[in-house]
């Protein structure tokens, strides 16, 4: 048997769901254990950061990095793991695209702080104490990381070799990636490991390509037709701009897509693509009526850039 691969898994600004998705490959995890020496995996193993610092450069064969980068610690560890790893993979939507935490780029840092530490209804903080990078306490000094102004994806910090989308990635995609890694048959650098076409192509709903929407509705307002394309029923669905590969999992549960897999191959900005897709189903040529129809779509920015704000053309709001 060939030598075991050295594997590291790390979470930065992450919910932990990506780590759980690795546990979710179930029996296959034993495979991983057989083929790999795990060198760092905070959710499951007792190694500390100081252990990683001692590893030789490039001694980790593959590092799966999940979570966005928002603070000095995450940035430091991203750079450290880049140095120690031959292959660095942005694992999951947060690392790849900024993800849901990337929506924080709709707000300024101070607005967030004020809301969380002063204004929140349950907070009692008349002294306006905020967390500080350095705090002197009776026994000495305490340090916590410095928080940056905005959320970034991993690629906006260091060079990344591969991207695995999904919030979290599906078992199938993780297995595809593991097969590639274990067999040594790696795709070209920069590959996004997902489907080739957009989500609509793998979505089981019936599409007619007719323009027929006179009114947009929010998912809670109607009982919709389970057989038909949601967008054609006036429910905003991000499928047209999203790369396939998830098996249309939300849509199968009668819930529209929000684009966690990121942009389709020919799409550079999900929001821009969705503007065209939404426009194409509107059934009207009268400017006044068009205005009225689109006024029913709430929060396009939050819907279109749910997972991709930090890597979108505009990156953040003003």
């Amino acid at each position: 048997m060939s030598a075991k691969l050295n594997l590291a898994i790390y979470w930065a600004g992450s919910c932990g769901g990506c780590d759980v998705s690795i546990l979710d490959i179930n029996e296959r995890i034993l495979d991983v254990a057989q083929n790999c020496d795990i060198k760092f995996w905070p959710i499951a193993m007792d190694f500390k950061l100081s252990d990683v610092e001692k590893y030789a450069d490039n001694s980790i064969d593959v590092c799966l990095f999940n979570g966005c980068v928002r603070n000095s610690e995450q940035e430091h560890i991203a750079k450290l793991l880049r140095k120690k790893s031959k292959i660095l993979v942005a694992f999951g939507s947060c690392a790849y695209l900024g993800g849901i935490p990337g929506m924080a780029n709709f707000n300024k840092k101070q607005e967030i702080l004020d809301r969380v530490y002063v204004e929140a209804q349950s907070v009692e903080n008349s002294e306006k104490i905020f967390p500080q990078p350095h705090t002197k306490v009776a026994e000495g000094e305490l340090e916590i990381p410095v928080f940056h102004d905005y959320v970034k994806s991993l690629k906006q910090i260091v060079d990344v070799d591969y991207f695995i989308p999904g919030c979290p990635p599906t078992t199938e995609i993780i297995n595809t990636a593991l097969n590639a890694i274990f067999s040594g048959k790696l795709p070209p650098k920069g590959t996004v490991i997902a489907g080739k076409k957009n989500l609509c192509e793998e979505c089981p709903k019936e599409k007619t390509d007719e323009k027929k929407v006179k009114k947009f509705v929010r998912p809670y307002q109607v009982i919709f037709d389970e057989k038909k394309c949601l967008l054609e029923q006036g429910i905003i669905c991000i499928g047209p701009a999203t790369i396939g590969g998830c098996g249309a999992r939300c849509i199968s549960a009668n819930i529209p897509c929000r684009g966690c897999f990121g942009p389709a191959l020919d799409v550079s900005d999900i929001g821009a693509k969705m503007l065209s897709a939404v426009a194409s189903v509107i059934d009207s040529n009268d400017p006044v009526e068009i205005e009225k129809i689109i006024s029913e779509i709430p929060d396009m920015a939050g819907m279109f850039y749910r997972f991709t704000l930090p890597v979108s053309l505009l990156r953040r709001s003003k």
Partner: peptide, 14 residues
């Protein structure tokens, strides 16, 4: 003509 008001709306939200 359909895209333009959508573009305006998105820009405004940004």
């Amino acid at each position: 003509q359909k895209r333009a008001p959508l573009i305006s709306k998105l820009l405004k939200e940004m």
